[in-house]
Amino acid sequence: MAKALDAKPGPLEYSRRWPLRLWVGAVILFLYLPLASLVVFSFNDSRRTIRWEGFTLDWYGTMWNDSALIDAFTNSLTIAFISMLFSVVLGALTAIALWRFRFPGKGLFDGAVTLPIVVPEICMGVAMLVFFGQIVPWPRDLVWPFDLGAIIIAHITFSFPFVAVVVRARLASFNREMEEAARDLGASELRALWDVLLPHVRPALISGGLLAFTLSLDDFVITFFTSGPNTVTFPVKIYSMVRFSVTPEVNAASTVLMLITIALTAIGMKLQGRDLAQGH
């Protein structure tokens, strides 16, 4: 084995040829250098963000005491969590409807639930602005978290079609005979869906839910058009910080957000891996 590793790369082992290795290395540097420097400078002991002046955790303290930033952060996590729950349910129902039934207007329904994936964010953003500004004005003075309703609805609308895509892909591998067996053994149709189909699509529900959470946490453009002065989310808050005052506090906040995303993804991959290992 060791001999094989030392040998000249085989004809198809492109990944072991140095020009390609160099290229891949350069791409990785291009992608990671800016992010790495962002993290490093969140520990910089200087108001100006460009020269290294020594290590400090002060910016994380500043961030922790910045109540506007913490509020925005709480809002973002709340929105993402509620949006995730709704998106999983709506996405699974959409996928099952399209996979299981033939009905008049199916093409139309399919198109309507695919469109949010392809419509430019800005178009959806202005549609939400007009809808919640004029058609169904969302009251601005509701108690938390109901004042976030408009943003949550917008996020569910662009997230659940993605969940539907993930679940549909999983449904394609479902063995219909399993469901028929359940029906033969006396289960009602809904009961069969619930007991036989649901366990099969669970990995897709988990990764779809995670996708919905991340999409919601990441969204800036659509939220930017839906949010009011009292309903600021984390990306919207960072946006105004970047526009008006660039301090290492932004770096610290960004680092925390990156860590959360990475942790969530790792958890999701682990859960999914375990689920897949369990007899599928």
Binding site: V89, L90, G91, L93, T94, I96, A97, R100, F101, F103, F109, A112, V113, L115, P116, V119, C123, M124, V126, A127, M128, V130, F131, Q134, I135, I153, A154, I156, T157, F160, A164, L190
Partner: peptide
């Protein structure tokens, strides 16, 4: 069928098709 389709169809109509139609 109705149990499965009602919620997503209503949602996409109310919060996507209508807002875009207004624009």
């Amino acid at each position: 069928f109705l149990a499965v389709i009602t919620a997503p169809a209503a949602w996409i109509t109310l919060f996507f098709v209508i807002p875009l139609s207004v624009i």
